[in-house]
């Protein structure tokens, strides 16, 4: 793709899709349709975003080694989700995004959600979880420079991601349950999910503190030695 050769253009496209196009579609959708269709729109947007990503991933030339290392990080994340209460899952997704790039981060997040839900309960929410976790990995890839420089920033980023993830999933709960979005229900949903929110925030912060350096070193080594 000669048009996308320029790194800056590619980066711009990345930003555009992740942070402008998808939310824009969601907003447009809710304006264009009445509020009964919110759930429909949001689900369609999530599925579409995932489709765009996966078909794009298929066309990209990704080395076999990079693919397998991404798979291994996914496997580690999956195992991480099975640990009770304090889960290293999101921390590992963030680290994958940081060291292996946006794409790998997104893929790891999305696949972890998809596969683990076969044990934790599959449903339409899977699409939202895939998108939410995927975007966390993607975002970590985008600002990897900053995250690698300061550990404090990384930990704060992890905590914010944990909170954001919980609150995004609450939006979904509300949309799913009621026709249209209501702040009252949303507040109630956030209220009931406080324990989860705290568990996400704490796990992310703790695991990024503990695993940030060692796992980063390991990924860097693989990158340099094997040219991943």
């Amino acid at each position: 793709m000669p048009v996308l050769d320029n790194i800056r253009i590619r980066a711009a496209v990345k930003y555009l899709i992740a942070f402008i196009l998808i939310p824009a579609m969601a907003v447009a959708g809710s304006v264009a349709f009445d509020e009964k269709r919110h759930i429909f729109i949001s689900l369609a947007v999530a599925v579409l975003a995932l489709l765009v990503f996966f078909t794009g991933y298929d066309k990209r030339q990704v080395g076999t080694r990079r693919m397998v290392i991404t798979a291994i990080m996914t496997a580690l994340c999956l195992i991480g989700r099975f640990i009770p209460v304090i889960k290293p899952m999101t921390a590992l997704i963030i680290l994958t995004g940081m060291y292996l790039g946006c794409e790998a981060g997104f893929l790891t997040g999305a696949l972890t959600a998809l596969i683990s839900n076969f044990w934790f309960g599959q449903g339409p929410w899977t699409a939202f979880m895939m998108l939410a976790l995927g975007l966390i990995g993607f975002a970590a890839g985008l600002i990897s420079g900053v995250l690698m420089k300061k550990k404090a920033v990384l930990i704060v980023f992890g905590a914010v991601c944990g909170a954001a993830y919980s609150m995004i999933m609450d939006i979904w709960t509300v949309l799913w349950y009621a026709e249209g979005f209501s702040f009252k229900l949303y507040a109630a949903a956030i209220g009931t999910s406080v324990p989860y929110l705290l568990s996400y925030v704490i796990s992310n912060a703790v695991f990024l503190y503990l695993l940030g350096k060692p796992v980063g070193d390991k990924l860097m080594r693989v990158k340099i030695k094997y040219g991943v």
Binding site: T55, V62, A71, I72, T74, A75, L76, L107
Partner: peptide, 28 residues
């Protein structure tokens, strides 16, 4: 079956998924 469906969307992502699934028991 999951891989069969997923490979329709993206063969490469399906490969990543299959690898991840295979590594879970190994890692454990």
């Amino acid at each position: 079956k999951l891989l069969c469906v997923f490979s329709v969307i993206s063969a490469r992502a399906a490969l990543v998924m299959s690898c991840a699934l295979r590594y879970i028991p190994l890692i454990r």
